[in-house]
Amino acid sequence: MLHLTINGLRVTVPEGTTILDAARSADIPIPTLCHHPKLTPYGGCRLCIVEVKGINRPVTSCTTPVAADMEVATTTPAIERMRKTILELILSDHPNDCMVCEKAGDCTLQELAYFYGVSDNRFEGERRCYTGKDHNPFIGRDMEKCILCGKCVRVCEEVQGVGAIDIAYRGFNAKICPPFEKDLSCEFCGQCVSVCPTGALTGKAWTQRGRQKDVREIDTTCPYCGCGCSLTLHVRRNEIVRVSSRDDTINEGWLCPKGRFGYTFVHSRDRLKTPLIKEKGVHREASWDEALDLIASRLSKIGKKHGPDAIGGLSSARCTNEENYLFQKFMRAVIGTNNVDHCARL
């Protein structure tokens, strides 16, 4: 274990810990844009700079490991001035369109601009102009909002193992794109969207469905495969408008294309909305009472005539434990048969 002081506070951390992680473990905030705790440190945005006694230049806390008895200052007038300048430089080439941006209210860059009071910009000048649209169905890519933090590149490579995008060109022309600047053609897991600190990457299905205001977040469990990922449904006016995932659960915040983008079936126009009874080969709408009475009388007659084992029930791997329990209890205790199964074998 190593001891250091951060802003005069004594902190003890294991060897190999970065200054940033040491500070965060002591609940001392340091702003970052390119850092993600599950990705390799990058040192790209320079916002996490701190002063270390004995080093006569600021160091990036996300890439600097703690040394014994280090004395760190995370906030000094000089450091804060530099941070504000960095933000001004980033924002000098960023569209000022927060009023229509999907990410407003949930944007790290917007939040930092707010806290550092960046509005007028000293560095107005040439801006990147990207008119090309990416036609993939899932991920909106507005590269003018990209700050080149590289989180999307790292998550795609390090977590997803796909490497669908990287930084192309250099200097002012640097941009993140798929090979040959084609449309994105990948697994569409949306991991990149989930780590993007600005509105550069968003879900296309989320567009103009609602930002943070009036959105309720409800944690639940994914309805697709057996991994059991945690989903957070963002709901506005009885409609799921997007899906995210908390990072402290078994899926570590990562999702697949079905989990992240496959929720709109819930509001599909094809949803069954009323009971149906088949007459002369055609389904007609019926009331619940009529449908349930018919079921009760037919099951009861068939049970009496042919015995309970002439009736079977198929339960669902899609339904909850409680519903499955009730279903088999219904078949066994009410109908009187063990003819109950589900699609475990399929």
């Binding site: 469990t221 899609r318 499955n324 279903f327 088999q328 475990a344």
Partner: peptide
């Protein structure tokens, strides 16, 4: 499937 383990656990 999301709850195939559960459906089996629950005796379906």
């Amino acid at each position: 499937q999301n709850n195939v383990q559960g459906a089996t656990d629950m005796g379906c």
